[in-house]
């Protein structure tokens, strides 16, 4: 399993549009991908779960990836967060 922490810079947090893009990105990989904010956790492949975390600007989240393609997945997701959020 691999994970990284990320502090959200987008003013609106993970709102609908980036949530959709994130789910799309996560869906490209076989690995299980989770996003954790505080004690709440959501499956990054499920849009309602991701939106339900209500991640706001300046929130710190942990992204964890577990599975066969975790190395590619974690690199892609880090790049995604840096570019979009």
């Amino acid at each position: 399993m691999k994970e990284f922490n990320y502090v959200i810079k987008d003013e609106l947090g993970i709102h609908a549009r980036p949530a959709g893009l994130l789910v799309k990105e996560a869906g490209k990989f076989q690995s299980a991908i989770k996003i954790k904010k505080g004690d709440k956790e959501a499956d990054a492949k499920r849009i309602f779960g991701v939106m339900g975390l209500a991640v706001k600007c300046a929130d710190e989240i942990t992204v964890s990836v577990d599975g066969a393609d975790e190395a590619e997945a974690i690199a892609a997701l880090e790049a995604f967060f840096n570019a979009n959020l």
Partner: peptide
């Protein structure tokens, strides 16, 4: 138009 793409994703959301 983006909204309708979102709606498709929501309809395929596994929790839902």
């Amino acid at each position: 138009a983006m909204i309708f793409e979102m709606h498709q994703m929501m309809l395929e959301d596994l929790d839902y």
